[in-house]
Design a protein around this nucleic acid. Sequence first.
DNA 1: GATATATATTCCCATATAGGAATATATAAA
DNA 2: TTTATATATTCCTATATGGGAATATATATC
Lengths: 115, 115
Amino acid sequence: MARTKTTYDVFSAIGEPKRRVLIEQLVLKEMTVNELVEKVQWPQPVVSKHLGVLKQVKIVREKKNGRHRVYRIQPEELRPIQEWMHQFEKYWGGTLDQLDHYLNNIQARGKNEHE
Amino acid sequence: MARTKTTYDVFSAIGEPKRRVLIEQLVLKEMTVNELVEKVQWPQPVVSKHLGVLKQVKIVREKKNGRHRVYRIQPEELRPIQEWMHQFEKYWGGTLDQLDHYLNNIQARGKNEHE
DNA sequence: GATATATATTCCCATATAGGAATATATAAA
DNA sequence: TTTATATATTCCTATATGGGAATATATATC
């Protein structure tokens, strides 16, 4: 078998460093492809292709505007990563805020349901 | 050029789903290779190879114990991910309304997970 | 020393990239 | 309608897998 597809899920998609750079830009503000190209200085097809992957896993959404396409981030889609990270927080010391506690409990309950 | 190496950094390493499963086990308690094989039911070389990648990016550490090797997680190494996630937190802040919304999403996502 | 156990490593191959180059498509402007 | 602009897509190739099968290595036990 071959490697896991980059579009398999959000984790796979952000494994590529360039895609994280695009995300870091889009989290600041929505941008067109050429605005992104300006910012990161990569060939336009490279940007478009990486955006394509991000679009497939729904990290970004495309909004047509004339001959421009505005790309916008969909932060909710990155929640699975944040949730997955919760399992390590107990090791990092410090206090967890109430929201985190609550979410941890929810998560634990959810996991047991499938056992 | 080819794909980014899985050992390029922590993000790339956790892109592979099986490696996340191993991490999820090791965060509960340190284990030997065979204990992991027992748990996940994959061929031993598969487990060893994935552990090799995790070891290279330092997510896990190996402790020799006779002919056993105990693998232990190094949670600090995952902090870059947590830090990277900070940039999205402003979108899913801590109000109850948003928490409700979030919990609804979890439920909805759970149902679609296996499609 | 011989053997069993635990784990890593090597060899193999099908597969999916990431990026360069060129081109296609869509839409606006002239 | 012709042209310019914005973006996506196709074709290509080198590369790095992930996993199966077989084997090597290390250590414990007899």
